[in-house]
Design a protein around this nucleic acid. Structure first.
Lengths: 140, 140
DNA sequence: GGGGTGTTGATACTTGGTCTCATTGTGTGC
DNA sequence: GCACACAATGAGACCAAGTATCAACACCCC
């Protein structure tokens, strides 16, 4: 579960400490997105005794490694989603919070068209898709 | 300048108060994106005596009317950009903050492809493009 | 020009995140 | 195995962005 996260941290050359293992386990246990507040609540519920700062620090680290990504939900809150380090986009279920990743699927055409029209050089982009996952749609 | 904003507020059926005129003028005077903090600073620099809350309230109102939109900058901060009420996306110059709007330019193909692959029904999306505007690129 | 009601400013509060610093725990070299 | 340098930690102060509350005010319709 959390092994991938830990392995990646190890490869990044940082120490594998107790708190990091515990937080990684909490992240692995969640599926879909979560907020920093969720993790903090989880940690305090289980009396892990890890501080808020440590959680934010680990999230930063994971984000640097591309193992976790920040997404901005439509309501303006932000969440983190565990994911593969390759470039991709997220599909977020607005009902249950499930996440799907989609690899590049034609966005380059969009960016180059936008670039052509505006004269801008495009360096990066952010695409987030919001909708309903198959389960939530059929449950309706 | 700020006339469009005021006209739109009028049409929205809200009162055209002194503070609203002043804030609208501040927004009109900026080109490109700005943060709420920018407006608050502007207002206090000119001793307009408008409160923070009023500024946030007006931004909300304008956002509801689609005259202003919140974008999340790559560094995680958020900014507001004045814009047309139709659906579109923003191109943000990372060097000077200039904004260009691009109408739909093929994103539907991307969303339907993503939908097909994932089984999600897609309800909305957010696309932000970051790069350099023609001026900043030539200035290097 | 009076009055109902939408709007305002001050201020307290909340949320999400960062900084600091003394203390602790890891991994490395030996 | 052990010691030690230094990365990582927790507690709590701090900060920034935004929201809630509420009495006082001002717009605009009549």
């Amino acid at each position: 579960m959390s092994d991938e996260l830990l392995r990646a941290l190890d490869q990044a050359g940082v120490r594998l400490t107790g708190p990091r293992r515990e937080i990684a386990a909490l992240i692995a246990k969640r599926n879909g997105h979560f907020t920093a507040a969720d993790l903090i609540a989880d940690a305090s519920k289980r009396r892990l005794g890890v501080g808020r700062a440590t959680i934010f620090r680990l999230l930063d680290l994971l984000a640097e490694q591309g193992l976790v990504e920040r997404v901005d939900l439509p309501d303006g809150r932000h969440a983190y989603v565990p994911c593969e380090p390759s470039h991709h986009h997220h599909l977020v279920c607005v009902a249950c919070g499930a996440i799907a990743e989609v690899e590049d699927c034609g966005i380059d055409a969009v960016t180059s068209e936008a670039s052509r029209r505006s004269g801008f050089t495009i360096e990066s982009h952010r695409l987030e898709l919001f909708g309903r996952c198959p389960n939530c749609r059929s449950a309706n």
